[in-house]
Design a binder for these strands. Structure first.
Length: 521
RNA sequence: GGCGGCGUAGCUCAGUGGUAGAGCAGGGGAAUCAUAAUCCCUUGGUCGGGGGUUCAAAUCCCUCCGCCGCUACCA
């Protein structure tokens, strides 16, 4: 059995869940569901990133210790998953014991090994730079301005001072060639291709060593053997991906089955951490890099950049409440080519849910199933010999599986949907062309064949769309009387059994009508 | 500044040398099984500007204009 390991980033608990988090998680979920459907052994991981100075500070501000604080706020993210219909297999928190053990193990593994150039991977040095206390951030010399008072200031206007602190460094500078070779030999390792090019050109510029410990705060995982230091949050955070599959027990069944990860799904803002640092950390520790890192784009809201200060943050729960879960899942996966930025607008959302879902797919189901209920004895009809028109529809429906499989293998979520909805459109044309309402009077046997072909097409559409819209497609398959154990790719060619009794049809996708609209004048 | 990408119908985009395409939106019609849904036809573009190569350019080359991404240690 093939395995498939997909991860979302672990979400930083200091953030409030927004559409970006939901989007990443949903993309992972669609992949996870499709791969399970397609017979893979799947592990879908998500979780929360809970260490770092900002979290410690937020906890202090709330008057609680950091652990109690993160116990609480990590729930914001955990609770979002069922609301989104996510089928994650685990939820990891970086404050868990298993994770501390894993981080310390990868640190030791890195420290024990040499770089490709024969140097130690980790060495103790000093991290120095222009630090703004107010911003809690370091700045590059080039970013600073010198005021009339002679003081250097950050772009934010905060005063900066030169500080030095002891720090362990990861000798990233020795890993550049290895990374470039990895990109070259594994063209699918980073996607979309534009991101791979960006990352490669970044590496080509030459890499500096990376500070991987801090001494200025202590809310983190202790560096083995030097407890004054806590690990750099990104080393801590990225390591979650192996913790969850059993690291440091590399001989465990789970680790052997699922590592390396099939896809790390990330937002475009954190590509570098996943496509440069992470593979280098892993290689330094003697572990395999992930098979693929894929960066998706960002959403705007009604054409505007989303920001807290603009107050136009899109809350996933609100969206689901307004439009429905499966509608939102569909919209996010369909509206924008995955990998590119996209715009959310209520008009576009409503257009998609009414046009694609209610009118095309929902109405197709309704017109076919209610016709069968009224005119074919509420049971699966018995088909006669197929004509060319029937074959054309059925063959195209049968071909969808391999198309969807190929598209999703490279995160082509929208293209996979394109292929399925092309068949839905064909099916609507077929209904009109065959006009079963006429056949009812002239040729009942032919009518039965047409209805059967339509139901078979709906069955396959329903099977494939389960990954995107699990709830609604379960209803569709129920209405087609597809048995629960015949809803995966293994049952792709197991056609509906004539004579099977059918339940009363019900609408799948209600049209969305805006308040004040909908009453005829 | 450097590197990379993009600019095609009202909107979102596909199309990388051979008579301009899709979806949605707009207009007209057909049908009546269905969630007034569906189906057919149709309006609409000097393919960012200019120059060049070629029998032929949205597609290759040059140049200009505009937009975007990356250009390292908050996460």
């Amino acid at each position: 059995m093939k395995s498939f390991y997909v991860t979302s980033p672990i979400y930083y608990v200091n953030d409030v869940p927004h559409i970006g988090h939901a989007y990443t998680s949903l993309a992972c979920d669609v992949l996870a569901r499709f791969m399970r459907f397609d017979g893979h052994r799947v592990f879908f991981l998500t979780g929360t990133d809970e260490h770092g100075q900002k979290v410690a500070k937020s906890a202090a501000a709330a008057g609680v210790d950091p652990q109690a604080f993160t116990d609480k706020v990590s729930q914001n993210f955990r609770a979002l998953l069922p609301a989104l219909g996510c089928s994650n297999d685990d939820f990891i928190r970086t404050t868990e014991k298993r994770h501390a053990a894993s981080c310390q193990a990868i640190w030791k593994a890195m420290a024990a090994r040499k770089t490709p150039k024969g140097n130690d991977n980790i060495y103790l040095g000093a991290y120095s730079g222009w630090y703004a206390v107010r911003d809690e951030a370091y700045y590059e010399e080039s970013e600073l301005t010198t005021g009339p008072d002679g003081k250097k200031r950050a772009p934010s206007g905060a005063e900066v001072e030169w500080v030095e602190e002891p720090s362990y460094f990861f000798r990233l500078s020795d890993w550049g060639d290895w990374l470039l070779e990895w990109y070259a030999k594994n063209p699918d390792a980073v996607g979309p291709a534009s991101r791979r090019n960006e990352v490669a050109s970044f590496v080509k510029q030459g890499l500096q060593d990376l500070s991987i410990s801090r001494t200025t705060f202590d809310w983190g995982i202790k560096v083995p053997g030097d407890e004054k230091h806590v690990m750099y949050v990104w080393l801590d955070a990225l390591t979650n991906y192996i913790t969850a599959v059993g690291y440091p027990d590399v001989d465990s069944e789970r680790f052997k089955i699922f590592w390396p990860a099939s896809v790390h799904m990330v937002g475009k803002d954190i590509v570098r951490f996943h496509a440069v640092y992470w593979p280098a950390f892993l290689a330094a520790a003697g572990l395999e890099p992930p098979r693929r890192v894929y960066a998706h784009g960002w959403w705007t809201n009604e054409g505007q950049k989303i920001s807290k200060s603009l107050g136009n943050v899109i809350e996933p729960n609100k969206l689901i409440e307004t439009y429905g879960l499966d509608q939102v899942r569909y919209f996010l996966m369909r509206e924008v080519p995955f990998g590119q930025d996209g715009d959310f607008s209520n008009a576009a959302m409503i257009r998609r849910m009414n046009t694609d879902l209610a009118n095309d797919l929902g109405n197709l189901g309704q017109r076919v199933l209610s016709f069968v209920a009224k005119n074919a004895g509420a049971a699966v009809p018995s088909p006669g010999a197929y004509l060319d028109a029937d074959r054309a529809l059925l063959d195209k429906a049968a071909a969808m599986l391999s198309i969807v499989r190929a598209e999703l293998a490279q995160q082509g979520f929208h293209k996979a949907l394109d292929a399925v909805f092309a068949v839905v459109a064909d099916a609507n044309r077929y209904v009109d062309a065959q006009a079963p309402w006429s056949l009812r009077k002239t040729d009942p046997a032919r009518m039965a064949t047409v209805l059967y072909a339509l139901m078979e097409t709906l069955r396959r559409v329903g099977l494939l769309l389960q990954a995107y819209m699990p709830g609604t497609m379960a209803k569709l398959l129920d209405q087609l009387a597809v048995p629960a154990d015949k809803r995966d790719a293994g049952a792709w060619d197991e056609a509906l059994v004539p004579g099977t009794a059918l339940p009363a049809p019900q609408g799948l996708f209600p049209r969305h009508v805006e308040a004040g609209e909908g009453t005829k004048k």
